[in-house]
Design a binder for these strands. Structure first.
Lengths: 122, 122
DNA sequence: ATTATAAATAGTAATCATTCCTATTTAAGT
DNA sequence: ACTTAAATAGGAATGATTACTATTTATAAT
């Protein structure tokens, strides 16, 4: 019981209505606009469970986890100057096929993260 | 003055004599075998400066930074069961050429990290 | 060799993202 | 309405990393 909380719904909406790859703190700030007393722990717990349920993916930039409502595996680019994280596009199967050393392994997560200066910051 | 410390040399040797991608804590443990009173801060500082000087690269698995004495860009695979991190091989230029969305960007770091079960743990 | 000095270290305290804990609240089934 | 399992709020704890400072060390000039 008590499975569909308003908090989870709000967090899910935030993730699905942005392409900005927010951190937990940023999701928390946005969620507070709707639920002023939502707690940070709730944000973390729901971001985790959304990721586990396949409704989001996460990746770490520096020390900070970022969340993406788009679950299709794709590479990301982060700008070391402005901090923005952008989506890249890529045929991930083709990408995997370029690699050797995976014999006998079972791959179930793929993180591709490029860093540098974005077109606005070059 | 005081630029070539024994500590830095030991840490550099540890990185260059393993393919195990140790964390800072693991480097610290190994360095202690040679310099028992070396401090963890010194390990972090030297790992950082080695990375900045292009003598090592680092990447984050979970929450933990791992260090690699091999500075050539290459993908890594970590096993979610045993925790091992393995090197993969890949033509990184070809990998980059698969991507779109980088127009106008200046790429200066490339992290490719696959996760799953390694051949020993499958 | 001795000395002067800037850089590096050891040890410890502080930081900060994330996780854990618990009393309270909430949603769903009866 | 009542029961109960799941979720929350708020705050405390964790743990990797960084910052701080007094002390030590390596280099270069005397």
């Amino acid at each position: 019981m008590a499975r569909y909380s308003k908090q989870r719904e709000v967090i899910e909406n935030i993730l699905h209505s942005t392409t900005a790859h927010p951190s937990a703190a940023e999701v928390y700030a946005k969620a507070k606009e709707v639920i002023p007393n939502i707690s940070l722990g709730t944000v973390y717990r729901n971001l985790d469970s959304l990721s586990h349920d396949g409704e989001a993916q996460s990746f770490t930039v520096g020390d900070i986890a970022h969340f993406d409502g788009n679950i299709a595996p794709h590479p990301h680019f982060f700008c070391t100057k402005c901090g923005r994280v952008k989506d890249l596009e890529c045929d991930m199967d083709k990408l995997l096929s370029l690699m050797t050393g995976l014999d006998g392994c079972e791959v179930d997560s793929e993180t591709v993260l490029l860093g540098g200066l974005c077109s606005e910051c070059v």
